[in-house]
Amino acid sequence: MPQMSDPDRAYANGAFIPGADAFPPRWEATARDFRAALGARAECGLPYGPAPRQRFDLFLPETTPRGLLVFVHGGYWMVFGRESWSHLAAGALARGWACAMPSYTLAPEARISTMTQEVAAACSAIAARLPGLPMVVTGHSAGGHLSARMGCADIALPGLVRVVPISPLADLAPLLATTMNKTLHLDQEEAQAESPAFLPLRAGVAAHVWVGAQERPAFLWQARVLSEEWDCPWTADPGRHHFDVIDALADPASALCAACMDGI
């Protein structure tokens, strides 16, 4: 792993992004407006389990969907939920794909290994609602980690053909030294077992790792490590930082949407 004198600084994002505090309320407002404009094609709060956060939102295109994109939100496994990101479904819908966004139980109530199983259960429930469609799982930051885990050999999801982890945490070992681990409660065993970089990609599942070229060096390292371990493409998106690298999911003509959905 890379040498770092301050692990917390290495994984701090907002401190290095101008106007970082303005992003979350803007995401929430844009997502809310998107859901309202979509009307009946936004099916929100669908359960995949009994726990309060075991819910997903499903957004449908105007025609019969030709594929299913699942987006897993980030927030270092500690904050946010599906409701802040609805607008990122726009690119998939314009391409004729359905898009689903699950929430999952956050730390400290759940460990990361539990979140992995919850997201797998969500993906299975989403696939069952739209059977027979090819499924691509993407996600950002902690959601990048969880989307990568969906592609690992120890998990079998119906219809999964590709994972596109965005700014993923692929090797969890460096997080053991951060103050956030007081909430995550990671130990060496779980860090090893839940790091996609230490696990094989499932046969028959393709992968493309995405990251903003202006992200923290630790995130560039994490993305590169995963791409090397999985022998898959990786893209450092020019000019993009950790908070705006996901914006391209709303643009059907973007290279990120192409990485997710082209050729399927």
Score class of each variant (00 low, 15 high):
His185Ser: 13
Gly212Phe: 14
Cys232Gln: 02
Ser147Gly: 04
Leu226Thr: 07
Gly143Leu: 07
His241Phe: 09
Leu169His: 09
Met150Glu: 10
Gly204Phe: 11
Ala177Ile: 10
Leu226Cys: 07
Pro200Tyr: 11
Trp210Lys: 01
His208Phe: 11
Pro238Gln: 04
Leu176Ser: 10
Gly143Gln: 04
Ser195Ala: 10
Leu175Asp: 02
Ala213Ile: 00
Leu157Asn: 05
His145Lys: 01
Leu160Tyr: 13
Met150Phe: 13
Asp154Ala: 14
Gly144Tyr: 09
Pro174Trp: 09
Arg162Lys: 15
Pro217Gln: 03
Ala197Asp: 09
Leu199Met: 07
Val209Cys: 08
His208Gln: 13
His145Cys: 00
Ala203Asp: 13
Val205Cys: 08
Ser141Asp: 12
Pro158Phe: 15
Ser147Pro: 02
Thr138Phe: 06
Gln188Asp: 12
Thr178Arg: 14
Glu189Thr: 14
Ala173Phe: 12
Gly143Ser: 06
Leu184Gln: 05
Leu146Asn: 02
Gly239Thr: 11
Ala177Pro: 13
Ser147Leu: 07
Met150Ser: 11
Asp231Val: 00
Ala142His: 01
Arg129Ala: 15
Arg149Glu: 00
Ile155Lys: 06
Pro134Cys: 07
Asp154Leu: 09
Glu190Cys: 08
Glu229His: 14
Ala203Thr: 13
Arg129Thr: 13
Met135Ile: 15
Met150Leu: 15
Thr138Leu: 06
Gly239Lys: 14
Phe219Ala: 04
Met150Val: 11
Ala218Asn: 07
Ala193Trp: 03
Ile166Pro: 00
Phe219Ile: 02
Cys232Ala: 12
Asp171Gln: 13
Glu215Gln: 11
Glu190Ala: 10
Asp171Glu: 14
Ser195His: 14
Gln214Ile: 00
Ser227Phe: 09
Asp171Cys: 11
Val225Met: 13
Ser147His: 05
Lys182Gly: 15
Ser195Glu: 07
Ser227Gln: 06
Ala203Arg: 13
Leu160Lys: 08
Arg216Val: 00
Trp230Glu: 04
His145Leu: 00
Ile166Phe: 01
Leu184Pro: 04
Ala236Met: 14
Ile166Asn: 03
Ala207Gln: 09
Asp231Met: 06
Leu199Ser: 03
Pro217Val: 05
Ser141Arg: 10
Leu133Met: 10
Trp230Pro: 02
Thr183His: 12
His185Tyr: 13
Leu130Val: 02
Cys152Ile: 01
Leu169Gln: 08
